[in-house]
Amino acid sequence: MTNAAKTPYEKVTAKTFPKGPDALAPGHRACQGCGEVLALRLLLKALGTDMIAVSATGCMEVCTAPFPQSSWRMPWIHVAFENAAAVASGVEAAVDILRRKGRGPDRRIPVVAVAGDGGTADIGIQALSGALERGHKDFIYVCLDNEAYMNTGIQRSSETPFGASTTTSPSGAKSKGQSTWKKDMPAIAAAHGIPYVATANPAFHLDLMSKIRRAAAIEGPAYIHVYASCPTGWRIKPELAVAIGKLAVNTRIFPLYEVLDGRYVLNRRVDKPVPVADYIKQQGRFRHLKDDDIAIIQARVDEEYERIVKLADVFPVEAQEAS
């Protein structure tokens, strides 16, 4: 039995920031100011090219891999939308057995599945659950959560936040936009008893990069839920990708934490939170919300943040400040 918290891994710091070409080549076709491709680039930069990547259909797949071009400098496969976890399971099992049979590289090779929130929390949740439950040793699943089906034109998903107007949860005379709260994917992933779950955010890039390193070091399935802003779908200015990400953490909307062998570690305490309204008012998708609506969201955000704090306090593990 391995101990996730004690598994050594190499953190990314300003001093040890990986040099050299990006594992995700430039020239992709993501929108200007895309927070998702920024997150993806940083995650891959942290791991380098000694890995195998599996993409679900979605923005990141479409914008990086139009035949005959590809931005992926490591072996990469895309099969369909809902099955990145299952494809990665097959790749991981194959790499493992070929290593054992002496027909592949004699070292651990991380297999990283990358999908959006729709491909993870909605259509892909069954495949993901199966993969997490089966305990693949070198399996990392990254959900890049931009909170709606952006690739198909901003339709709501189960990760769309309450109050957001999307093309299938539009605000109107009888609607305040999305009527449900975000599905708690990290908790669902953690409920599978896997050794490592984390939330991350490209606005805290060293923390994000360190987390995928940690995921790769720990033996067993890992799940990383990554905040990914979307200027097109959220109707924010393209230059806000990093600023909005910082706000998401500093308002407590998107807490940064890890779950190591089931134990929560809050990476960044937010003792003096910025009001949620500061986050909401910068985004066109929330434009229709009134102060009363924002108050409801504020209450929910506080409650959720406190829940994570309590979970972290139950089993105090040395906290790690996000940088």
Partner: peptide, 26 residues
């Protein structure tokens, strides 16, 4: 039989895993 047996959670995942596995050279 020295093989990895993946007890997948559906046939959709069975074929997805098989595609991944064959693509990885197994």
């Amino acid at each position: 039989l020295d093989a990895a047996y993946i007890p997948v959670e559906s046939e959709q995942s069975a074929m997805s895993s098989c595609i991944g596995s064959a693509a990885a050279g197994a």
